[in-house]
Design a protein around this nucleic acid. Structure first.
Lengths: 238, 238
DNA sequence: AAGTGGTCTAGACCACCTT
DNA sequence: AGGTGGTCTAGACCACTTA
């Protein structure tokens, strides 16, 4: 075994749930049974089950067992950190990315503040319009520290920036803070998007951190009102 | 000790971080040191630290230690499940709740679908306008299964519905699914809110589940555009 | 009473970082 | 080499549910 036991158990169970092999609202094998099935210890099984619980796959009930939840309704999971490319593919819709801007620049004061840097650091600015069903409905503006990402190309930006950062550069993205609000469109929004007559735009600000807790990217996703949707799963308490 | 060890350790550390006793971006004691300080085992300490990590208080780095994050920017944590009352109090602003409607009724087809019931079940409908700084900016419409909550009063709705459900009735709320979108205002919105000239409204749909994974409440929070804000903290991967 | 999940322990080995 | 967090184990006791 090279990989994590609890992760492989988790992935195996996710697979079985998503494929319908284990049906919604049915009882999973008990922890002790899973211990035997996977030939491991109970704490390891419990680690896998807690992951399933956190991610909304199952509900654990003391004295009764673990039950699968109806996970079918997650048709647009913006929850967590998901790139546009992953998302569009999951929805199976035709999509296109248009790279509007790609520049290395000294950031303006607002971006300096968002990234918590001073004017000396260079920043990549990427502006990309996202086209779904022949309408440009999302404008993604990324600001990436050049000290972390030395080189970038139009080709990379047309694909998945995330895949490049994690795959090619080996960066490990650890967590993100997200803020959703509504604002008035800027000139840029009108220029790059098919905004129709909408007088407002949904703004999602993303602050993205690496494994060492350093902030390295600020992204502003600007969504046309009627096409915006955000889904979240939250457990209460602790 | 009556209570959970790992929870008391967690709460103790949260307290120390939020009070500034432990400053942002500093190193916590190592796990082994915490084992000694709290007189417990390492797995228990790790359970507390993992909770801190999940909730955005610390970042754990292999080989180096656990470091506090700058948690100061969480001034409006709608993330997770938080009631309006808890929120308003946290912000320290004057707020008021106006109960617009309180009825026991047979739900219309849309609500039946949301709650996954048929027309025979009775449902409490509660409509409440939330007033902040003399403007009614949020309309909360709650639909609660009468089979779970037999009685309700105007007085209860003026306070915190959550506090009543969890405190008085002893219901245990386990998790919720949330969906954010933008829609056009209804007549109801115009009647109960100070909508100004805004032609759209932010809609947050909440599906709230009990410990046994049964859906018992559907809530629609309708926010005036300019006052809407949603903050989320998300860890990547697993 | 038997089965279930929740908590806790003491110890082990590993991978990573620092010195 | 020593310290750190990450994983895993085998066993224990508890609280809750069901029969």
């Amino acid at each position: 075994m090279r990989v994590n036991k609890f992760l492989t158990i988790y992935e195996n169970l996710v697979e079985r749930i998503q494929s319908g092999n284990i049906k919604p609202n049915t009882k999973l094998p008990s922890e002790n049974e899973l211990v035997e099935q996977y030939g491991t210890s109970r704490e390891t099984v419990r680690k896998a089950l807690n992951l399933l619980s956190q991610n909304g796959y199952i509900q654990k009930i003391k004295g009764k067992g673990s039950f699968t939840l109806d996970v079918g309704k997650y048709d647009f999971p913006v929850s967590g950190l998901v790139s546009f490319k992953e998302l569009a593919e999951k929805m199976g819709k035709p999509w296109k990315t248009i790279v509007c801007e790609l520049d290395l620049e000294k950031p303006d004061p607002y971006i300096q503040k968002q990234l918590n840097i001073n004017g000396k650091d260079s920043v990549w600015k990427i502006a990309r319009a996202r086209e779904l069903e022949n309408e440009r409905i999302i404008l993604d503006k990324d600001y990436v520290l050049q000290s972390v990402v030395p080189t970038l190309s139009k080709k990379i930006c047309e694909g998945s920036l995330f895949a490049y950062l994690e795959g090619e550069l080996g960066l490990k993205i650890s967590f993100a803070k997200k803020e959703i609000s509504v604002d008035e469109p800027t000139e840029e929004d009108y220029r790059y998007l098919d905004l129709k007559d909408y007088k407002h735009i949904v703004v999602v600000k993303n602050y993205i951190y690496l494994e060492d807790a350093s902030l390295f990217q600020y992204t502003e996703s600007r969504h046309r009102l009627d096409k915006f949707r955000f889904v979240d799963f939250a457990r209460r308490g602790h």
